[in-house]
Amino acid sequence: MKHAASIIVLGTLLAGSACHTLERSREVDNPAVAGKTIAMQICSNCHGMTGVSVSPFFPKLAGQQREYIVDQLTDFKNHRRTDPNGVKFMWGFTHLSERQINEIADYFSSQQPALGKADDDQLISEGRAIYAHGLPDKGVAACQSCHGQRGEGEGAFPRLAGQHSDYVVKQLMVFRHTDARPRGAIMKEICANMTEREMQAVAAYVEAFPAETKEAVSTPDAEKEAVATPDAQ
């Protein structure tokens, strides 16, 4: 009986300790809270536990470029990124430390990217052409020159593969019409020369880009090589 009573007491103490730890972990303004904990308990409410958001209102973060996440969180913290949704949902995170920001970025960038989905074949086809070749007559560079042939992104240039098309269009419009994203000078110039249809096409294409594929988007040079050296029949 004494042994059983001891187990019950120990269990009660451990349970109480766990609850206390959970409550403290939700004190996100506490610099001692790990960034991973913030990601799993706070960020996950909008972006999903593994960074795969359900609503296109919030971007997918799984597999996103680490440097890009750090840059955006830093801009939100310092109130430099002023797009409406950023102000509404992210400006409250002024307490994040540099360590926490880096740990949040580590967590989401290490998650498995989500698969994209195909919808409008015609729109996707138009988007593929713009992504691979740009719009030379408008001075719009190929998207893949910064975001990678597979939409994987690099460094400060974000991953686009599998991202919600609605979110992509919304951000392209922010770049086009505002200065709300301070690191978006390049994109502002590009978007100024794109129609809304062209933005929608690119967005549809990158959302449909399968995250796990190794098939690269064909480039003009690659196409020339393919013509010059056809596969043996």
Rank of each mutant, 00 (worst) to 15 (best):
I186M: 07
K138R: 14
H95W: 15
G35A: 01
R81C: 13
S125R: 12
D221N: 09
T37M: 09
T21S: 11
F76R: 07
T74Y: 09
A156S: 10
A18H: 11
S25P: 04
H147N: 00
R81V: 10
G11L: 14
C146Y: 00
F57W: 13
S97W: 09
V217F: 04
Q41V: 12
G162N: 03
D179I: 02
R181F: 05
T178L: 03
R66H: 15
V9W: 07
G155V: 04
Q111A: 02
R66W: 09
I186D: 04
S53D: 08
A208P: 03
Q100I: 02
T50E: 11
D179S: 13
V54S: 15
Y167W: 13
R183G: 01
L123V: 01
R150N: 03
Q171F: 06
D137S: 12
G92A: 10
V168E: 03
A142G: 00
S44K: 07
V70D: 01
N30Q: 06
K88C: 06
Q100R: 06
Q163C: 04
Q111F: 06
A161P: 04
P136T: 01
C191W: 00
G51V: 07
G92S: 10
E189M: 10
A114W: 05
G16R: 07
A203E: 00
H20K: 11
V140E: 00
V9Y: 03
D221Q: 14
P113Y: 01
I130W: 00
G51W: 09
A180R: 04
N85K: 13
N78V: 10
R181W: 03
Q233C: 03
V227E: 13
A228E: 01
V33P: 09
R99T: 08
A228M: 11
T229E: 07
Q41M: 14
K117W: 05
P59F: 10
T74A: 14
F57V: 14
Q100D: 03
G155T: 03
V52E: 07
D29E: 15
A232M: 13
Q122M: 11
A185N: 06
Q72G: 08
E154M: 14
V140Q: 02
I42E: 14
N78R: 13
V87T: 12
I101R: 04
D29Q: 13
M90H: 13
F209N: 06
G63I: 09
Q100H: 05
R24L: 13
M199V: 04
A141Q: 04
E189N: 11
I186F: 13
P210H: 06
P136C: 00
C191M: 15
A39P: 10
S125H: 08
Q111H: 09
P136Q: 00
Q65V: 11
W91N: 15
L22K: 06
G148C: 05
A142Y: 03
